[in-house]
Amino acid sequence: MVPAEVSRRDDDIDRQYWRGWVPEAPRQGHYQAEDDQLLMIPTNQMEENGANPQNHAWAVGTCPMWNCPNFWADPFEYRFERCVPTWEQEYLMGTIVAPEMSMVVVKSVSYEVISGLGQYDLFEFSMKDPILKDQWEDMIIDIGVPASDGKYVFASDVKPLPLEYHLDRNNRLSFFVKARGIVDLAGNSNHFPGEILNPNANFRLSVQGWLAPLRKNVDGAPRPTDLGNMEFANLDEALYLEGR
């Protein structure tokens, strides 16, 4: 009978001597972008009595990418424009589709009515994904001035209206507009749905925010941010390098 092969690894005195040793330096000196170093807790400083700073802990906090844009985030401003020919009917202005590798973070919108509506007329925007997420309205209070000079109450082409929303990847968000006319306290318009708006109204809407990348832009293959840092000083990885 052939004797079972016995591993001789434990007899290697050299290996036993270096067991547990972890090389200090990263394998490669390339720059690795950290997108989660926004909140650094500086507890890693030397104490007065000269204690080893390694005895202190420090941590890297993460600010969620829908609250803080990271280094690789791309600001965007989507602009939609369309003609609205009738009163009291909703028209699609445009749709944002979140790309495969990014989250769309919406922070504000601004808008402008180019023509068509008159003094005291209301207009209403809706946001659906596809259920109704938000709905806001504004009014032309002074037809004689430019939009940036107080033509509307709550926003204009240069004054954004705060709007917090984020779209996960591959989701879509649509914006609609409706010309309403003069309304009473209950919100009833003086126009009926489908009444011809003469001349046609032209709306412009821009949506501001940033695209938060869901993959890390490091050298080599992009890596989902869910998997954490692709760093050397990960204990599992260190043990793996050590050969265990």
Partner: peptide, 13 residues
């Protein structure tokens, strides 16, 4: 090694 690992932990706030 454990210290280095702990040092590089990412703590979600």
């Amino acid at each position: 090694a454990a210290q280095r690992a702990a040092k590089n932990l990412v703590i979600p706030v």
